[in-house]
Simulated scan of single mutants.
Amino acid sequence: MDVGYWFVFLSAAVLLTLSPGPDLIYILSRTITQGKKIGFASSLGVCSGALFHVVAAALGLSAILATSAMAFTVVKYVGAAYLIYLGYKALRSAGESFDTESSGEKNVSFWDAFKQGVLIDVLNPKVAVFFMAFLPQFVRPNEGSVTVQLIVLGVIVIVVGLTIEFLFVLLADKATRFLRNSRRFCAWLDRALGTILVGLGVRLALMEKP
């Protein structure tokens, strides 16, 4: 066991998770607007989408996004359109998504939130490029299969990220739980969530190919 190697790798993984990127912003916005259950589901979905990119990077599939401008652009715009669509739905709800008595069937379920998180991450080509750039730096050719190492390292990054995101979800839920009982505040939360999602979609659409 190389202590220095793992210290650098895990420190990098922690710092990357703590940085205010689009994934963390999305998860926190979901938690603040709809509670820790949906926050957990969103985090699990985002991390599952990241796992897809880890496997793709290990198998070399992400090289297509890294080298093909057309593939990168198509995935980018599909992901941006999906985020903007989710934002539009939130903007239209005007607090109804929190009214469990009159519109319980409209509430986002755990499974729906999970699927949304998966799609948001899978349709973000920058995540694929990130794993292709980050993980190979820690591969040690003399330690066995490069593919296996890439997958193991990627899973560790995801587990670290999931742990930290869950802590953020718990803190965000506790800080805003009492405010969600106000219908007026719920309407404001829906508008804020919609604005954030649309903003993330526009940000993704304007992103240049790394």
Rank of each mutant, 00 (worst) to 15 (best):
2 D>P: 11
2 D>M: 11
2 D>A: 10
3 V>W: 15
9 F>G: 00
9 F>C: 00
10 L>D: 06
10 L>T: 08
11 S>F: 14
13 A>M: 07
15 L>W: 15
15 L>A: 15
17 T>R: 06
18 L>N: 06
18 L>T: 02
18 L>K: 08
19 S>M: 12
21 G>V: 00
22 P>N: 07
22 P>H: 08
26 Y>V: 01
28 L>P: 00
30 R>Y: 04
31 T>Y: 13
31 T>G: 09
31 T>A: 09
32 I>L: 11
35 G>Q: 05
39 G>I: 05
40 F>R: 08
41 A>D: 03
42 S>Y: 09
42 S>G: 08
46 V>L: 13
47 C>Q: 14
48 S>T: 03
49 G>V: 12
50 A>M: 11
50 A>R: 05
52 F>M: 08
52 F>P: 03
54 V>M: 04
57 A>C: 08
59 L>G: 10
60 G>R: 08
63 A>W: 13
64 I>H: 06
68 S>F: 15
69 A>E: 03
71 A>Y: 07
79 G>I: 04
83 L>M: 12
84 I>Y: 06
84 I>N: 01
84 I>C: 13
88 Y>R: 04
89 K>P: 03
89 K>G: 00
90 A>R: 04
90 A>D: 05
95 G>D: 05
99 D>T: 07
102 S>R: 15
103 S>I: 01
103 S>P: 00
104 G>M: 13
107 N>Y: 11
108 V>D: 05
108 V>A: 14
109 S>L: 05
109 S>E: 04
110 F>R: 02
111 W>D: 03
113 A>H: 01
114 F>Y: 12
114 F>L: 12
114 F>A: 05
115 K>L: 10
121 D>Y: 03
122 V>D: 08
122 V>G: 11
128 A>G: 14
132 M>T: 01
135 L>S: 04
135 L>G: 03
136 P>E: 07
137 Q>C: 00
138 F>P: 11
138 F>K: 12
138 F>Q: 15
140 R>W: 04
141 P>L: 08
144 G>Q: 01
145 S>V: 03
146 V>Q: 10
146 V>Y: 09
146 V>K: 08
146 V>D: 05
149 Q>A: 04
151 I>W: 14
153 L>Q: 04
155 V>H: 11
156 I>H: 06
158 I>V: 12
159 V>L: 15
161 G>Y: 10
165 E>A: 13
165 E>W: 10
168 F>R: 02
168 F>G: 10
170 L>D: 06
172 A>W: 12
173 D>I: 06
175 A>K: 12
175 A>C: 00
176 T>F: 13
177 R>E: 07
182 S>P: 03
185 F>Y: 14
186 C>Y: 00
191 R>L: 14
194 G>S: 08
194 G>F: 10
195 T>V: 11
197 L>P: 04
198 V>I: 13
198 V>H: 03
199 G>W: 01
199 G>S: 02
201 G>H: 03
201 G>L: 09
202 V>F: 11
202 V>D: 06
203 R>T: 09
210 P>D: 02
